[in-house]
Design a protein around this nucleic acid. Structure first.
Lengths: 241, 241
DNA sequence: CGGCCGGTTGACTAATTTCAAGCAGGGTGG
DNA sequence: CCACCCTGCTTGAAATTAGTCAACCGGCCG
């Protein structure tokens, strides 16, 4: 029986969760973490393709990923989907809902995913007692702003090749942060999702990934990717040739 | 002597500031506003082209605009400017700096601009006493996330025409919120800035604005714009033809 | 077995960029 | 005071990137 088969696996408390350093403030002492633990609803499993919330649902909580991958997306004026983020284990999402008391994005699991739910009202009460928790949450939101602005820059200035190289390298970094391989991983999202996120068509994504493969920058087998020439990829990502 | 010539004009306290409803929480009672007033450094004038802060400056404050216009921008990997937002009177900016304790954007005045500075450390202390202030600030940051994601959607999916029509309508709305004309206004930013923000070249911006003019959708005289066919503009913004 | 979905590949098309030139206004120095 | 220059803006023609359309493949599901 592997770790993830254990029925208790997804019930791990925050203080024991391996992802703590990513998802929780480093500054919380163990006593404070217990308080947070008490309000977190832990480890609900969401199946691939299921929603965690939908746009216009009343905002009530933010969410942390224990395992698995999630995409968040908005619906454009003319009814199309625009993916605004892919979310990795240990990351928090759902903060877009705060300002209007309802979510502006929808969130969908890219694979079977374990989610911790953090009810926002209770969380906010807690921040009054724990100022460092408030600081951490401000930082999380600010981080989200920074991420979004990085995507803005990418969409505004980079070529298709640069966008795809950048995405691969970003995933690589985020994996490394989680002590997973920085060079060999499985893409949780479809080609269509990648194109949608990067403002490209599926065809373009397919062509460029295969070009990278033919050029020896990466090895590609379905969703499995191996980054072979990291330096060349970095060059491609920033400056092209 | 007009209002704005008065040397005290830019020293108006928060409680008296006409922009209060936009920049401050509606929920603060007058007693609480006084507390906020005490920490705000009011009405510094920044001249056109001057910076309020630069990327990598240590983060110490967020800023509110009393009058005038500000653009915020990042520097891309290859040293180019990417404008991430235009900011109007009553708006708060500088929140991107929180997560890394330094600003990730630079902020520059588009014209002579009066700025209120809100030192963040003192502000955060205050939020402990005034939970509604904390709520308001969460909302402001969440709003910023929403705005950025709207721009992402625009850059990812909209044509040049749609982007420009959308920008004009957005400015129109923001003016209306400030009891200014929704149909007749002066663009604070250059054509180059517009192009940069929307992910287009100056030439494209120029061509399309003039096309709108020839089609009778707008009247255009330098930076002065008049929106003539609002409905047609709305159609153009969303669906094109 | 048939159909559907996700992905790939090719040929053609169209949107926007690039390059180049010119124009008007504002400010500066001779 | 005028010539000059610089910047911001405009306009045209050519070049290029990514999109569109269409066909095809393989795996999976009912």
């Amino acid at each position: 029986m592997t770790k993830s088969d254990c029925p208790m696996y997804n019930e791990t408390s925050c203080s024991q969760c391996r992802l703590g350093k990513i998802c929780l403030p480093l500054t919380l002492n163990s006593h404070d973490i217990v308080k947070l633990d008490e309000i977190v609803k832990r480890g609900r499993i969401t199946q691939r393709g299921e929603h965690i919330y939908r746009a216009n649902d009343p905002f009530h909580a933010v969410f942390a990923i224990r395992s698995g991958y999630v995409k968040t997306y908005r619906i454009t004026d003319d009814g199309e989907e625009q993916i605004t983020g892919f979310h990795f284990p240990g990351e928090i999402f759902g903060m877009d809902g705060i300002s209007k008391s309802k979510y502006t994005n929808s969130a969908k699991a890219l694979e079977s995913t374990a989610i911790c739910e953090i009810p926002f009202a209770r969380f906010q009460e807690l921040t009054v007692q724990l100022p460092s928790l408030q600081t951490h949450f401000f930082q999380l939101m600010s981080q989200e702003i920074s991420n979004d602005q990085q995507l803005i820059t990418m969409l505004s200035k980079k070529t298709a090749e640069q966008r795809i190289a950048t995405l691969l390298l970003t995933i690589s970094e985020r994996n490394a942060d989680r002590n997973m391989s920085a060079t060999h991983f499985r893409l949780a999202m479809s080609r269509t999702d990648i194109g949608n996120y990067l403002g490209l068509t599926v065809e373009t994504v397919s062509r460029i990934l295969n070009r990278f493969y033919k050029e020896g920058l990466i090895v590609l087998d379905q969703k499995e990717v191996q980054l072979v020439e990291m330096q060349a990829l970095r060059l491609t990502a920033n400056l092209d040739e």
